[in-house]
Computed example of a mutant assay.
Amino acid sequence: MKKSSGLDSIIDFCSKWCSSREKPVLFLILFISGSCLGRPLVLEDNLFSYSTHDGKNIHLGISFIYPFVKDKSTWPYAKDVMYWEEWPVRHPFLLFGGLNSNNDQYLSLRQSLNADFSNSEVIRNMPVRYPLLWISGSN
């Protein structure tokens, strides 16, 4: 039996999990953005360098969702039943993930997305509205 990689494990989880949610894209983005917030809060540990015993980590989660944030028409699962047209916006995971992995693609995509959203559901589900305030001088 082939041992699955962390990314295979994330894809397997997502295919099962997304099929049972009304807003899978929103919840995945919210979960990954929230996970990224642990890094600025826990300064003595870099949560971006943490991996589970089976290889799951924040970087794999970001690399999984990134292509769909870049082009949501490629999303292979059911669309969110509400607010599909409102996403994506300037999600904090793109900033924190881009800075922690030195990934200019994440930072460029973030810059290209809407930062001036007014939909109450988007605002309610944005874990950090002003993520630049969470960035210290020492990354």
Rank of each mutant, 00 (worst) to 15 (best):
G34H: 00
D80Y: 01
L95D: 01
C36N: 01
F68Q: 02
S51D: 07
P127A: 10
P127Y: 10
P127S: 06
P88M: 00
S20N: 14
F27D: 03
I11M: 08
L26P: 00
D12S: 05
S9P: 11
H59E: 07
H59K: 00
K72L: 08
C36T: 11
E22F: 08
S15A: 14
C14H: 04
A115D: 08
S19C: 10
G55R: 00
D116Q: 09
P127H: 12
S9G: 02
S35W: 13
P67N: 05
L41G: 06
A115P: 15
S15Y: 13
L28G: 09
M1W: 09
S112R: 10
D104V: 03
S108H: 12
I10Q: 00
L26Q: 12
G6A: 13
S73A: 04
L28V: 06
S49P: 07
H53D: 01
W87M: 07
I65Y: 08
S108Q: 02
V25G: 00
L26H: 06
L132S: 08
S49F: 15
D12T: 11
F93D: 04
I62H: 06
L99C: 07
Y106P: 00
F64T: 02
M126A: 03
G61L: 11
P40D: 12
P76A: 14
N46S: 02
N114E: 12
E44W: 15
L26A: 04
N57D: 05
M82R: 07
E85W: 06
L60C: 10
T52V: 13
M1G: 03
G98E: 07
G6Q: 06
L41R: 14
C36F: 14
D116Y: 13
G34M: 03
S101V: 12
F68V: 00
I58H: 06
Y130M: 04
R129L: 14
N119I: 09
S4I: 08
I123L: 08
P131V: 01
R129E: 15
F64W: 07
N100H: 03
G6Y: 09
S49W: 04
F31N: 05
I62T: 11
